[in-house]
Amino acid sequence: MKWFRAETFDPDFAAALVRVSPNRNARRDGTAERTHPPDMILLHYTGMASGKAALDWLCARESEVSSHYFVDEGGIVTQLVPESERAWHAGQSFWNGETDINSASIGIEIVNPGHEGGCPPFPIMQMRAVARLCRDIIARHEIAAARVLAHSDVAPGRKSDPGEWFDWKYLADEGVGLWVEPEPLGGGRFLQEGDSGMPVDALQTMLRLYGYKVDADATFGTATREAVIAFQRHFRPARVDGIADASTITTLHRLLAALPRFS
């Protein structure tokens, strides 16, 4: 693996501080270096006890992880990797046919201890900073609203960040990401693990159309359940249980209808 030297660089986001992470390399497109700019933003929570510990880890060579940006609780933004380079934040992941999410994306780590830390809220100053940063990236790279994603979207079952309490609606109201009003919880027919047949096939097709990696076997197995959980975390956070109830399916319909290619 080709390592980059840890020299400093000018931030792409003018308001950012710079702390260089050595954990980066060239963006790739297949077997060649990527010739077009990133077209995706991926949001994470740090999932560590403190922001300092997380920032130190992202900048430690032995960790072999990094992100382009780091946003602390007070809204201070630090850039660790130039946007022109590939940060190591997504791991094994997939979205809409793309398997090298690190090459396709700009990664933003948001300080929050996460699920294991009790799911504390993201402070408003932090959310405002994330929104400003994302708007700046979107404007410079012309990133589509539907390409602002959670780590859990591209790695269902493996990752759960930035979590179901992250305020995606706030971001959308600030011009960042795609959001539709979730259908309220209610009764009615549902699909769950172990089910099979045409309704499951239709669910899998809709999830794949949006970008999730699911099997096309008309069987509600583990991969489908994990994709439903990821969808619920991002778009229907009132209940995250992996069961495709009427609320989940209706919200997914609305989301697909909001995509430019289907509208």
Rank of each mutant, 00 (worst) to 15 (best):
K2V: 14
F4P: 05
F4V: 15
R5D: 15
R5E: 15
T8E: 00
T8N: 05
T8L: 10
F9D: 03
A15E: 15
A16D: 13
V18N: 00
P22S: 15
N23F: 04
R27I: 05
T35H: 10
G47I: 09
G51A: 12
C59R: 06
A60W: 15
V65L: 09
H68D: 15
F70W: 13
V71T: 13
G75F: 05
I76E: 14
I76L: 13
T78R: 11
T78N: 14
L80W: 12
V81H: 14
S84N: 13
A90V: 14
G91F: 14
Q92V: 12
E98F: 07
I101D: 04
A104Q: 15
S105T: 13
S105D: 13
N112R: 07
N112E: 11
E116P: 00
P123Q: 07
M127H: 08
A129R: 08
A131Y: 09
C134E: 01
R135F: 07
A144P: 02
A145C: 00
A145K: 03
A150L: 02
H151N: 10
D153I: 10
D153E: 12
G157V: 05
D161I: 06
G163Q: 11
E164S: 06
W168G: 07
L171D: 02
D173G: 00
E174C: 07
E174P: 00
L178H: 10
L178I: 10
W179N: 04
V180E: 08
V180M: 01
E181F: 01
P182A: 15
P184L: 09
P184E: 01
L185I: 06
G187K: 02
L191N: 07
Q192G: 13
E193M: 10
G197W: 06
M198R: 08
V200G: 07
L203G: 07
T205C: 05
L209W: 02
G211R: 06
G211D: 08
T219I: 14
T219M: 11
T219D: 10
F220H: 05
G221K: 01
A223P: 00
F231A: 08
F231Y: 02
R233I: 02
F235G: 00
R239N: 05
R239M: 07
D241F: 06
I243S: 04
I243G: 02
S247Q: 13
R254V: 10
L255W: 02
L256Q: 04
A258E: 09
L259P: 05
P260N: 00
